[in-house]
């Protein structure tokens, strides 16, 4: 298959890559760009482990073609914080033990941030429905909800 050249901005950096026409954005990120923070749990949009934001909206990167993102802006978990600082959500996940194995964590953090960007003060129910596309098998979600709410509270007063 002939490859396609694509120019994008990823985590604030101008990024060019080539990919096959049928290659997913997730495969591009992981296999061509070394951005392995997004995980593949299913490849069919059912688990949310590969969540990234594409032009400000969160998507499953497994359901996006690499070829589609020409001219787009993408943020992955690797772009959530810069330098040695952690985003308040990242810190809250550590403080509240909101991860056990941690494989779903990057996707959940990206999704939670996308919600708080739209709604800084969600109810637990809103949060649970927003995160319904992010499967976690370890925690039962409880500490995840607590961590996001704690981070949201801190972000509102920051």
């Amino acid at each position: 298959m002939k490859t396609i050249q694509v120019a994008t901005t990823i985590n604030g950096d101008a990024t060019e890559f080539v990919c096959a026409p049928d290659e997913s954005l997730l495969d591009v990120l992981r296999n061509r760009l070394g951005l392995t923070g997004a995980k593949e749990g299913c490849g069919t949009g059912d688990c949310g482990a590969c969540t990234v934001t594409l032009d400000g909206r969160m998507v499953c990167s497994c359901l996006v073609l690499g070829a589609e993102v020409e001219g787009s802006t993408i943020t992955t978990i690797e772009g959530m914080s810069t330098g040695d600082a952690l985003h308040p959500l990242q810190q809250a996940f550590i403080d509240h033990a909101a991860l056990q194995c941690g494989i779903c964590t990057p996707g959940i953090l990206v999704a939670a941030k996308a919600l708080l960007d739209r709604n800084p003060d969600p109810t637990d129910t809103e949060l649970r429905y927003w995160l319904a596309g992010n499967l976690c098998r370890c925690t039962g979600y409880d500490k995840i909800i607590a961590a996001v709410q704690d981070a949201a509270a801190k972000m509102r007063t920051a």
Partner: peptide, 8 residues
């Protein structure tokens, strides 16, 4: 689908 799917 999910909120992720809703984005697309």
């Amino acid at each position: 689908g999910s909120k992720q799917v809703q984005g697309r």
